[in-house]
Design a protein around this nucleic acid. Structure first.
Length: 1319
RNA sequence: GGGCGUGUAGCUCAGUUGGUUAGAGCGCAGCCCUGAUAAGGCUGAGGUCCGUGGUUCGAAUCCACGCACGCCCA
């Protein structure tokens, strides 16, 4: 017997279901049921275990859970392993805050070991929290018990043994560190933690493979650096610490040199706010498109170049008046307004503008640097770390440019693609040949440069389109030979002067140039900074705006590749030497003469720079310059940019990764994931895998401090062997996880030198941790059979913006290196969760919605449906958090007014969730409630003899047929990872069920209980079957609601599985699928829809019966189809008669329009004539078309043949009828009312009002009443004479009596006003 | 600067190989239905289909150029 169903109360219902699952161990039963069957492999992307979950995490987790539930119901075996991302700076930052540690040195004082244990503790704490939240979402995974995780968290860092019970029921007793290092291993079960030893060790395996292929190398990068903090900062941290400050800014001249290397009286004028960086100057950057003035100072006759716009530019004029964008950032008192350059030169004796040139003209000019006397400037290599030399060799081999012996000019020409020999060299002079020569030369230059690029410069080589462009490129590269110039001049001359000698000269110079080019390029590598000072193109940033602009400076920017981010990038592009002046503590290195040991940002250092420049006569002017500058948010010190050593993986095997990428299905299609990933792979740089921090993967790189030799170790076993074989420190390390600081004590012997090798200090990039999981979590090293079973994953899913270069990238590249295969078959990406206005939600302004706030206010089923129905390619506008409205949440553990992390809980509203409830969940629930509540009254027995479907009424067969179609659609949706399609199909079906089937069939359920007729039983059985199937279909999507409905529908059914999630997923019964029935019903629904519209037009409410509806169709078949459903139509529309006609010509005026789609191809240009003339053809002729005949007519003066398909027929207004049409079906509705019809309409109104009154009075369905009414209209009594029996039986009224003195609001019965009361 | 994508109703978005009167949901206005329904249905108002030019009998759709926005890259 079913339990009575009341309001849905979705959220408390979810709580009940959670308890039910828990108490009955449903998840465990599901796993047992499918154990050992065909696997379906899902690989979870690790969630950062550093904060509680927000609603944005729930989207992906809903996909993950729904697909797993779907495949489990299809009998597949699953791993159910969740993942936590545990290592990295994000954890360190939070732990530092928590412990009040201000700087890197503070961490070291605190103790790296204790710090690392704190990081583990935090991760375990949040893993426990996220586990609880995920359980609330209904996310079925093999979860570790949150209590066990908390137990480990509190014990970490102590030696006391702890007893851990794992999800697979194994108990182990050991110190927490040892237990934690093994979390997630296949024997224990439970979530994987990327800090586990297996995860870290598998990354070692990967890095070893990279090393064996010669891909690991040491390079460098320039990072924001805090001297006192002793650490590099991320962009985010930098943004936090910005402050307004005043620097001593300098205008400095760099004397330009002539071709012979002698100083001229011309100078570049540069400007800097960081004087200390001048010590490491290498180049000067200009913007080639900008105009530069050539200005002569009257004081000493020196000539200066700087941006023309800067001469009169009022620098910081706006900031002087308005400040720097924040109220507290006003122009500092005592700092004078900035002078224009014009003013500065006027004050020192005046100036004269000699000329204006484009920046392009300066490119390649050499100059004398401001601190060339320093040893660092004379070091031939600077800090440049060449890429592995074998790469350069390899690239040289691919240089296909055949530089043949000059004696065989013909061969050379041939290599350039010009067929010619020396005997007819005259032909070279033909303009076409010159053109071709120029074109081919440029192409060859591009190709040639690309071949020699590696290890020398990084600038992308364009396909040169002009010789000037090529020349400029070479100048940027510091190419100093004049051969190119000569070639260029000869080429220009030969275009006008066709002589064989000149022609030969062109080819000779070209040959010489190409021959010399590599030597020139490689020579640059060994030139000192002092020898290489030159003007270069400053390039553009990622937005395409030039790095160098006129305005604040001089339009010439001094470039110190070891001291600035842009400088570094541009420097690498053009192959400049990199001078790194600073040590880790922010002081100068020993190669910087008088600066050695001085702090870069100390005022004394600035003074020293100024004094030195003055002495050399290079200081043009000095000023106080206020600006926003980054400071260390911990120490308050000014940040500097510092060159740091980093470790890289050379990604020159990108083609292999692309090959793997292309074997994967990337969803959704519209996002072009594969193309994006391939594009990223095409453009990406080498992978920087190191980070100068404490908590993370210990990079398994051991270095010989003397020679710089390094080795990558592939496993702890290998390390142990090496450490015990002549190394040291293994015994002290043993018993600890391979993290800093413990691992750092292990040393190995360099077989080449016999020196001890020490591990590099760095930790790893955290994307290594996440990228290895397709190997580590499936046991690649330790459980190879298991790995073979589960690899590759059938699905991974993740929020995609950003992941193409993060997780997806690391998964793909690591799998390519490890196994050469795709780590997953399908990737389903989804976009971001936004607020209702489409804006991002922020933690800081209180608009971020926490998971539990949404779960306990919106309901998890509604949330899940929202995610699943959302197009994954679009942002989801989830809802709004109202930070000012605090609320108390009723959770499964009782009321709370804070989130799991202690934030006060606030009101959350969501339009989309309301809609889901209104359109899907409530109609479904109401359908279910309708069934259950009538079935209870009727004592319907689900086990009663089944009425064969074939014997059930057509509408039952229609519903069941539609249900089979639905099963197919939902299955197809899941299998294509297209949940929106599945949701849409379900929503449509639920609408049909509720608003068509149930509404149409209500009366079949009302008949008194002892009737016991087959028709009624058929109705119950049809609806029961449908609802039960729906619960199974929806179980993966709305697991709670489905479980509740299923539980009640199957109560007292001993053979039914105890949970909907233990059922098999429904399979369509094709024998019940009746496409023609579905089509017929859909036609009838069309007729009904049109007729409803017509009632609207005629202003006739549905309760008013009408005499007749007539319809006509294009095909006889449709006419029969609709006729078969006449009763349905009549009843639905409240008309007395429904009749089908071949033509409605007698009551309807037909309109004919040309079907352009079919006529277009046949008659093309006549179409306009068709449009005009066809409707005007004689109506008897056109009528033939309606009967399916082909007619001949004259259109546009031409004889044409028109078939029935060539016209579109519509129905227009007629007299006494209203008429309309849709999709070829014409419908006419009689509007003439007889007194009988009017009275019947009144009766229906009367019933309706009584029913409303019953409802308002909350009467039970079966309760009987008496009715009083009062009216001044005699027609009411007349109506009742005829209709009181019906009214009484419909409303369970014992009597209907006229009365007087009734109070209450009169209601409309037909035209009459009546007061009706019930009791 | 290069590549990719997007531009359709107040908002969010569909729109098939080019075809007639460009659709849906939300919101707004009105009406209707309802003894399962705190739901639902219908109608209406609301459109320079980003702009310009081209191809075509016919363009939201195809092509070219431009504009705006987004993403990726350097």
């Amino acid at each position: 017997m079913f339990s009575k169903v009341n309001d849905a109360e979705f959220i408390t219902g979810e709580h009940t279901v959670l308890k039910f699952w828990n108490e009955r161990h449903i998840f465990q039963k599901l796993r047992a049921k499918n154990a050992g069957k065909q696997p379906w492999s899902f690989l979870d992307g690790p969630i950062t275990a550093n904060n509680p979950m927000g609603v944005h995490h729930a989207w992906g987790r809903t996909y993950k859970d729904s697909f797993q539930r779907y495949w489990a119901m299809n009998g597949r075996d699953l791993r159910y392993q969740n993942g936590f991302d545990c290592q990295g700076l994000w954890v360190e930052v939070e732990v530092e805050k928590q412990l009040g540690l201000g700087a890197k040195s503070a961490i070291e004082e605190f103790g790296i070991d204790k710090f690392v244990q704190e990081c583990k503790r935090r991760v375990l704490k949040y893993a426990a929290i996220q586990t609880e939240q995920s359980v609330r979402l209904g996310y079925w995974m093999e979860w570790d018990s949150p209590e066990e995780l908390r137990k480990l968290a509190s014990a970490i860092g102590t030696e006391t043994p702890v007893t851990l019970t794992t999800p697979k029921g194994i108990t182990e007793t050991a110190p927490a560190e040892a237990l934690v290092s093994r979390l997630g291993n296949p024997d224990w079960g439970g979530s994987y933690f990327t800090f586990s030893t297996e995860n870290n060790e598998t990354i070692w395996t990967f890095l070893k493979k990279c090393f064996e292929r010669g891909k690991v190398y040491r390079g460098h990068d320039v990072m924001p650096w805090s001297g006192r903090g002793g650490s590099a900062y991320s962009q985010m941290e930098v943004a936090d610490g910005r402050k307004l400050t005043t620097h001593r800014a300098l205008f400095v001249r760099f004397p330009l040199l002539d071709d012979a290397g002698q100083e001229t009286n011309e100078n570049l004028l540069i400007w800097t706010t960081t004087p200390w960086t001048l010590t490491s100057n290498v180049a000067a950057m200009i913007n080639p498109e900008l105009d530069y003035v050539k200005l002569q100072s009257k004081k000493d006759g020196l000539v200066y170049y700087f941006a023309k716009d800067n001469l009169e530019f009022q620098r910081l004029a706006k900031e002087f008046k308005e400040g720097f964008g924040r109220p507290e950032w006003q122009w500092p008192k005592g700092t004078p307004k900035l002078k224009t350059l014009s003013q500065i030169f006027k004050e020192s004796g005046g100036y004269e503008v000699l000329d204006t040139v484009k920046g392009e003209a300066l490119v390649g000019r050499q100059y004398r640097g401001p601190f060339d006397e320093l040893a660092a400037q004379k070091d031939p290599r600077g800090e440049w770390q060449p890429a592995p030399s074998q790469n350069i060799a390899a690239d040289k081999d691919t240089d296909e440019l055949a530089i043949a012996n000059l004696d065989r000019l013909d061969l050379f020409c041939e290599s350039l693609g010009i067929a010619i020999d020396e005997s007819n060299i005259q032909q070279v002079l033909l303009p076409e040949d010159l053109k071709k020569l120029a074109k081919d030369t440029l192409a060859r230059l591009s190709q040639h440069l690309k071949c020699h690029q590696a290890g020398i410069f990084r600038q992308e080589v364009p396909e040169f389109s002009t010789l000037q462009q090529a020349q400029l490129f070479f100048k940027n590269l510091g190419y100093r030979s004049n051969i190119l110039e000569e070639f260029y001049l000869n080429y220009e001359r030969s275009r006008n002067d066709h002589s064989a000698d000149l022609s030969k000269m062109v080819l000779t110079k070209l040959h010489e140039f190409l021959e010399e080019l590599p030597a020139q390029l490689y020579r640059n590598k060994w030139r000192t900074a002092a020898e290489q000072h030159r003007v270069i193109d400053g390039g553009r940033d990622f937005k395409g705006t030039p790095n160098v602009v006129a305005g604040e400076g001089t339009g010439i920017v001094h470039c110190a590749p070891g001291c600035g981010d842009i400088d570094h990038h541009i420097g690498l592009q053009w192959g400049l030497p990199v001078l790194a002046p600073l040590q880790g503590d922010g002081t100068f290195k020993s190669t910087f003469g008088p600066f050695t040991g001085k702090n870069a940002v100390h005022p004394e250092t600035v003074q020293l720079v100024i004094d030195s420049l003055k002495e050399k006569g290079l200081l043009v002017a000095e000023e106080k310059y206020p600006h926003i500058y980054p400071f260390c948010w911990r120490t308050g010190d000014e940040l500097v940019f510092r060159l740091v050593d980093e470790w890289f993986i050379n990604m020159d095997w990108r083609d292999e990764i692309m090959g793997v990428t292309k074997q994967i299905q990337w969803l959704p299609d519209s996002i072009q994931g594969q193309e994006r990933e391939v594009e990223w792979l095409t453009n990406m740089r080498d992978w920087m895998i190191s980070k100068k921090r404490y908590w993370g993967l210990a990079l398994p790189i051991w270095e010989d401090p003397e020679t710089g030799d390094f080795e990558v170790i592939g496993s702890l076993a290998e390390l142990k062997e090496r450490a015990l074989d002549g190394g040291e420190g293994w015994n002290d390390f043993q018993g600890h996880t391979p993290h800093k600081p413990w691992i750092d004590g292990v040393k190995i012997r360099n077989p080449k030198t016999g020196n001890l090798m020490t591990r590099v200090e760095d930790v790893g990039n955290p994307w290594l941790d996440a990228g290895i999981v397709s190997f580590s979590t499936m046991g690649y090293n330790t459980h190879p059979d298991m790995w073979k079973k589960w690899y590759p994953a059938d699905l991974v899913t993740e929020c995609f913006p950003g992941q193409f270069r993060n997780w997806f990238y690391s998964l793909l590249s690591m799998a390519t290196m490890m196994d050469g295969t795709p780590p997953f078959k399908t990737l389903l990406g989804h976009r971001l969760v936004m607020n209702e206005q489409g804006q991002p939600m922020h933690k800081s302004d209180g608009t971020a919605i926490w998971f539990e706030e949404a779960a306990e206010q919106i309901g998890v089923d509604a949330m899940r449906w929202m995610y699943l129905q959302q197009n994954p390619a679009s942002d989801l506008r989830f809802g709004t958090r109202h930070p000012e409205e605090k609320v108390t949440l009723e959770t499964v553990n009782g009321p709370t007014n804070t989130t799991i992390d202690g934030v006060p809980t606030c009101k959350v509203t969501s339009g989309p969730a309301d809609e889901v409830r209104r359109q899907v969940l409530i109609p479904l629930w109401n359908s279910y409630a309708f069934f259950v509540n009538y079935a209870r009254l009727d004592e319907f027995d689900p086990n009663a003899a089944v009425v064969p479907v074939a014997e059930r009424p057509e509408i039952d067969r229609w519903l069941l047929s539609n249900l089979q179609a639905l099963i197919q659609q939902v299955r197809a949706g899941f299998e294509a990872f297209d949940t929106p399609a599945a949701c849409a199909a379900l929503a449509r079906f639920i609408d049909d069920l509720s608003n068509w089937y149930i509404r149409r069939n209500r009366r079949r359920f009302w008949r008194s209980k002892d009737t016991g007729d087959l028709d009624k039983r058929a109705a119950y059985q049809t609806l029961y079957e449908t609802l039960l199937t729906l619960t199974k279909l929806m179980a993966p999507m709305t697991p709670f609601l489905a479980e509740r409905m299923y539980g009640n529908l199957t109560s007292g059914q001993p053979n039914a599985p105890e949970s909907v999630h233990l059922c098999d997923y429904p399979t369509a019964d094709e024998s019940l699928l009746d496409a023609s029935l579905n089509r017929r019903m859909s036609l009838a629904q069309t007729v009904v829809r049109v007729a409803h519209k017509l009632r609207e037009v005629a202003d006739q409410r549905v309760r008013q019966p009408l005499a007749e509806l007539r319809f006509a169709t294009l095909s006889a078949e449709d006419l029969i189809s609709i006729s078969s459903l006449k009763e349905v139509i009549a009843d639905e529309l409240n008309v007395k008669a429904v009749s089908g006609f071949e033509s409605l010509g007698h009551i309807v005026k037909y309109t004919y329009k040309p079907n352009l789609k079919t006529l277009g191809p046949k008659y093309g240009k006549l179409l306009n004539a068709f449009r005009e003339e066809l409707p005007k053809l004689p109506s008897d002729l056109l009528e033939g078309l309606r009967r399916g005949q082909t007619i001949n007519a004259t259109v546009g003066g031409e004889a044409v043949t028109i078939g029935p398909d060539d016209v579109l027929i519509g129905a227009d207004q007629a007299e006494g009828w209203v008429a309309g049409d849709e999709s070829g079906i014409q419908v006419a509705l009689s509007t003439t009312l007889t007194p009988e019809l009017v009275k019947e309409g009144m009766a229906r109104d009367f019933i309706r009002h009584i029913q409303q009154a019953r409802k308002d009075a909350n009467l039970e369905i079966q309760q009987r009443i008496t009715v009083d009414y009062q009216t001044s209209e005699p027609i009411v009594a007349e109506m009742l004479k005829e209709w009181s029996d019906l009214i009484s039986s419909e409303t369970l009224a014992n009597e209907i009596t006229p009365a007087s003195g009734l109070s209450g609001k009169p209601v409309q019965v037909g035209e009459a006003e009546v007061i009706i009361t019930i009791k």
